[in-house]
Design a protein around this nucleic acid. Structure first.
Lengths: 222, 222
DNA sequence: TGGTAAAAGATTGTCAACAATAATTATATA
DNA sequence: TATATAATTATTGTTGACAATCTTTTACCA
């Protein structure tokens, strides 16, 4: 695979999984050494992460994991409501049996992950469920935007709320949502999504986590 | 001003104003010579324009002005409908007298530009009106997304429709929209926006314009 | 003539060395 | 000791030269 893409995904994953809390400094030479690549490649990756708003870049000082403000979080969730409510309204009553079946299988995986205590995997699958819904609309621009928002959400949660295993999506909601989509009850589907996201947003507080320092250790486990 | 920003805006403007039609090749050394900057700076700018989807980049071949497909255009407009309908619904009945007045002054400028035949300026102001609405929501994420969409729209129109001075926003719609916003008639406001965008989208065809070749000439006039 | 292969040219991609800037430490002084 | 200032170190930013790749031209042959 393309080297740049690999490095990008490693760092992105480490940020999304909160192994590098907001504020953690990302030094170019250090990252280059860790991944065994040239500094120029790291610069490109950090630049991309910056435009994805996962990283803050201060000229002549450097990059650090982004620290979204409370307002950033509120605006993100407000926009997410607009887009995801539209998604479920579009999908409601318009999914094939195969598509419904595929969604049900997906949330079963999700549930299993939580049951065996792998909340890390569960959170990832929960985010994946929302992406899957966006994919089903077939609208690539909408998918692109929602992907962007979904990726930014973990950082917002980390910046603004206590680390808490229950902060993930509620699997029960996902099941109810699929039922409503299958039944073609678009009002119910929209209402479920609205409450679902509101509940997530409700977990904000004003705690600020400590930045990480030991990057080598963080990238031990791929 | 920062050199990179200046160059970015020059090239962006040239693309948005259709001085470089879709498919026009953007050679690094040529652009570097034109703007009197190093090639590295041009590479950064082209990279940013690529992630803004105004430029297509083919590895080891180079950059060219993006050629959005018909589906790209449809998806873009569908997403624009979602976001802009939400904007006017939020704004309806929630604007101060000053804000309404500012909007009216704005479309007066717009109208004047069209009346004196400066359709170039008119198109720019029309796009600005839509951005202004997004700004008034106060939601920076929403603004960011809509800005992105508004910037991509001219390229879509150029790729998919005949160059046509009437392709711009209809000023009359903008006036009616402000009236509805002031009156707090959100349903009317949404309906106006819906029809307004639909009309714009209706101008698609399957013509493909010729790429430009003489970049020096294009950048004569800043 | 038409088509294929080699050579030449043009263009993008990468890198290592250097420059510029910021952060840290050491030093001097009241 | 506390503060200001200078020297040092660490880090990011830039550049020119070279490498890799693609495109065009040329030469050759059936």
């Amino acid at each position: 695979m393309k080297q740049e893409e690999t490095v990008y995904q490693y760092i992105e994953k480490a940020i999304l999984e909160n192994r590098m809390p907001p504020g953690t400094r990302l030094r170019e030479v250090q990252l280059a050494d860790i991944f065994g690549v040239k500094r120029g490649l790291i610069r490109k990756v950090l630049s991309r992460l910056t435009s994805a708003k996962l990283v803050d870049h201060i000229p002549n000082v450097g990059a650090q994991v982004a620290c979204p403000s409370l307002k950033d979080g509120q605006d993100l969730f407000a926009t997410r409501q607009i887009l995801e409510q539209s998604v479920v309204r579009q999908l409601s009553g318009n999914l094939s049996h195969e598509q419904i079946k595929s969604l049900r299988e997906y949330i079963q995986q999700e549930q299993q992950a939580y049951q065996i205590g792998d909340s890390q995997k569960g959170v990832g699958l929960s985010a994946g469920f929302h992406r899957k819904l966006a994919e089903l609309t077939g609208n690539r621009v909408l998918l692109e935007f929602l992907q962007d928002i979904i990726n930014r959400t973990p950082l917002v949660m980390m910046s603004l709320s206590q680390p808490d295993p229950t902060r993930a999506c509620i699997n029960h909601d996902h099941r109810n949502l699929i039922d409503a989509l299958e039944a073609g009850d678009s009002d119910a589907a929209v209402a479920i999504m609205q409450q679902h996201l509101q509940q997530l947003e409700g977990m904000f507080s004003d705690e600020t986590p400590e930045p990480a320092t030991d990057l080598e250790q963080i990238f031990q486990q791929p």
